[in-house]
């Protein structure tokens, strides 16, 4: 198993909101597997209501085949606007 940190911030209406936790991915899981795994914990990575960030960068920026590794961190935030 690969353990990836998950942190949901910004007051999102999600069960994991405000919590720092860890989710397991199967060995060999890659960036392209993120949406399906997040959906299992109630987060639609493709929804315009959320931005998903992997290790500080937009998750789409990474090649889908790039392998995830222990210690990677997913951050889920609202779509940002100025104020």
């Amino acid at each position: 198993m690969t353990q990836v940190g998950l942190w949901v911030v910004g007051g999102l209406d999600l069960a994991l909101s405000g919590r720092r936790t860890t989710i397991d991915f199967p060995d060999g899981a890659a960036v392209g597997d993120i949406p399906d795994r997040l959906l299992e914990v109630g987060i639609d990575a493709h929804s315009p209501k959320y931005l998903v960030v992997l290790n500080g960068l937009g998750w789409r920026q990474f090649p889908p085949e790039q392998k995830l590794k222990d210690g990677d961190v997913l951050l889920v935030i609202p779509p940002l606007m100025g104020g």
Partner: peptide
Amino acid sequence: AKHRMLGTAQFIEPVNALG
């Protein structure tokens, strides 16, 4: 919906989390 609930202040926590 989040703008009504939290206003633009909702972005403080994420922008800080992003450094």
